[in-house]
Design a protein around this nucleic acid. Structure first.
Length: 326
DNA sequence: AGCCAGGTAATCC
DNA sequence: GGATTACATGGC
């Protein structure tokens, strides 16, 4: 698989204007996130792909204090509208304008949050995915192990997404809803090993091909609007609201993070969803999502699911993506 | 073999 | 309404 080459097209300077501390590394790289091939990180540098309509953009990000410098690479036809989109997309994806001071103050009064806060203070929610993309991720997380989620993600991105190379790194890139809408359920089931999700994923593709994100944001009740899509239930809708819509009060509770929170908040191995969410909302009113994020990422900080790369690691990374199975 | 995985929809009462 | 149950697949 020879990746498509992207050329340098722009450099964006994105100031962090939101109140509160800023931790660049843990904002762009999340220790708990499973490997997608869509992004790669070293201690100082982060690479990520974005779809802006038909355009494929590769972005290399670094930070100087409270300024994020983003170098943009594309396959041509880069217009001012693309620049505007990417400035807004990157600023929103990493919460650069969001106020973290309220949460930080709330958290400093909660003993269970002492360690996560001291090690991750200034971390913001990261969601480079748009609503469609994060809904696909959440769908692939439903009722399976992470090993299978990773397998299905790899299959979908290999067969229907793209492989690109820029700034010395090779990454996968998402498919658009319109592109995925052409894929039949039979292919999704037999080639991509999606199981029963093969029947629901096409609903995601057609919904987001035919509805803009603005349509969704206009709905009074986001969670309810999302659940009109077949295959989107309370969990996936909460992921969409907390991640893509960046509602800090929403937290998508599943059996995995439920156990992590039960341990930290209630000192037990597991507890009912009501008990866990009740405690989280009581301690962090309006910021349950941010609080959950800190607890989960802190749990994986010492043993990340996808560790940071060093310079030597990048060659092995590129090799694995370009020549899988060798 | 059987159970379980970072849920959801359909079908009961 | 709230409580079951089937749903695909793969690993242990």
């Amino acid at each position: 698989m020879t990746p498509r080459r992207l050329d340098h097209a722009d450099t964006l300077q994105l100031p962090v204007t939101g109140d509160g501390p800023f931790d660049f590394l843990h904002t762009v790289w999340k220790p708990s996130h499973y490997a997608t091939g869509l992004e790669a990180h070293t201690a100082a540098c982060s690479w990520r792909t974005f779809r802006v309509g038909d355009l494929v953009a590769g972005v290399r990000m670094q930070a100087e204090d409270r300024l994020v410098i983003a170098d943009v690479y594309t396959d041509g036809d880069y217009k001012p509208a693309h620049r505007d989109h990417l400035v807004r997309r990157l600023t929103a994806s990493y919460g650069l304008e969001e106020d973290l001071a309220t949460f930080t103050e709330l958290a400093s009064a909660v003993p269970a949050m002492r360690e996560p806060l001291s090690e991750l203070s200034g971390m913001r929610q990261s969601c480079p995915e748009d609503h469609f993309e994060i809904a696909v991720v959440a769908l692939l997380l439903q009722n399976v192990t992470i090993a299978r989620t990773t397998q299905m993600t790899r299959n979908l991105l290999t067969h229907h997404g793209q492989l690109v190379h820029f700034d010395g790194i090779t990454l996968r890139a998402w498919f658009t809803p319109a592109e995925l809408a052409h894929v039949t359920p039979e292919t999704l089931k037999e080639q991509d090993r999606l199981g029963y999700r093969a029947k629901t994923l096409p609903h995601f593709a057609t919904f987001f091909r035919d509805h803009t994100t603005e349509d969704l944001q206009e709905a009074g009740n986001l969670a309810q609007a999302f659940q009109q899509i077949k295959g989107v239930g309370p969990y996936t809708a909460a992921i969409m609201a907390s991640h893509a819509s960046r509602n800090p009060a929403t937290f998508g509770l599943d059996v995995w993070n439920r156990k992590i929170l039960a341990r930290r908040l209630l000192d037990v191995d597991d507890a009912s969803p009501e008990a866990v969410m009740g405690c989280l909302n009581e301690l962090f009113p309006g910021h349950a999502g941010t609080a959950g994020l800190y607890f989960v990422e802190h749990k994986y900080l010492r043993a990340p699911v996808t560790p940071l790369l060093d310079l030597a690691g990048i060659d092995a990374w590129n090799e694995a993506l370009e020549h899988p199975g060798t």
